[in-house]
Amino acid sequence: MAMLEVKNLEVHYGVIQAIKGISFEVNEGEVIALIGANGAGKTTTLQTITGMLKPSAGEILFGGQDISKIPGHKIVSMGMAHVPEGRRVFAELSVYENLKLGAYTRKDKAEIAESLARVYKSFPRLEERKNQLAGTLSGGEQQMLAMGRALMSKPKIVLMDEPSMGLSPILVEEIFNIIREISAGGTTVLLVEQNAKKALAIADRAYVLETGKIVLSGDAKEMMNNDSIKKAYLGE
């Protein structure tokens, strides 16, 4: 059984249909890339999965349970974390307070401390700046904080929305290395990216979204050699 299964999902903004009946699945341990141009519906898809938007039709099965009608704040404790587009760190709070909020749904203090130590180990720069306000961090550091904050909930699956957006090539490299590490640590990853080349390079499988529909899916390595993908998304 797939860990996350989206079935015939439709999402509307008022009368405008943003997602036109998409289906895909994510198996445990996989890195799945969802690629597509601006406005294809990638962010909308992730926001609907984590309950920020309500679908107008379809099902979202997480561990076999339909979560499309569960209030968004309850989905986190089921084991799903979401690193939103634009990082959305709490600028007025310190790095440490941001990370603590990531563990908001957890109770066991010792386990939280353990997760915090693990996040600091993966992101040493966050530990150096733990008392600094998140708003004063650089873009790359904020992205690391957003990822670290998501990991603080000890998720089974992390949804990442454009983690490389607006970062320098060196930082993009670093961020993708971290995604690799997260995956190696046993966490499933659903990655939304405009940087299709990088995304396909680390993904197991990928889905291509075009104006609210999935137009192509398959093995990520094969997709990298697909001529139409090359032309449309890889700039070759």
Binding site: T50, G51, M52, P71, G72, H73, K74, I75, V76, S77, A81, H82, P84, R88, V89, F90, A91, E92, L93, E97, K100, L101, G102, Y104, T105, R149, S153
Partner: peptide, 23 residues
């Protein structure tokens, strides 16, 4: 925790909800 949740909600409701805060 409730106090920190208040700060989080006042700054960004959606992001707070993603932390599991009941807005």
């Amino acid at each position: 925790k409730a106090g920190q949740a208040m700060l989080a909600v006042s700054e960004d409701k959606d992001a707070a909800q993603l932390m599991g805060v009941n807005v």
